[in-house]
Amino acid sequence: MSPRRSLLSRIVPLMLACAALAACEREERVLRIDPPVAEALADVEPMPNGIGGSHPEVYAVLGAPYETNAYDLSQGKRLYSWFGCKSCHGDGSGGAGPSLLDGWWRYGSDIESIFLTIRDGRPHGMPAFRDKLTTEQVWQLAGYVQTIGAYSAKTAAPGRDDDKQTRPAENRAPAALLMERRGKP
């Protein structure tokens, strides 16, 4: 074996091992959000009709965590059951309130609209949760609600259900209306 070859044969596995190590990084959980960041997260500028708007600058800087982070989605799922969302929206398939998983969004499917819906409420029954949840919690809940009715599956999923499944899992694809249509010839 030539000296050159033996050097290569040593370096290549080492580099491969280093590359594999990079995959060991696990998703980061932000447990404590800095108060100024939390405050800045409330700066959603809605469009005049209350649908859609610009997200706070800090939201993009954080990397849109509430749509993609499994921990935040799980916390959102807990908030969904703790704060009585089930009493109107059921398991997501609706009840006294509209369904969340059918993919039909009255006020837009973007997370800013969902944030505004939860925080400020909407006419005909949706209460405002401004005084019940912190801004961070509203974002977590909005991320989870968006997941329920997303048009394409997210890569991150919230925690599993302990009870029997009554509806498709949150990280399935796509939304129920589209799924039904796809099933038809």
Binding site: L31, R32, A38, R78, T134, E136, Q137
Partner: peptide, 10 residues
């Protein structure tokens, strides 16, 4: 108590 479910209420 990092990770507990009590949020920091401003």
């Amino acid at each position: 108590k990092p990770g507990n479910n009590m949020p920091m209420v401003p």
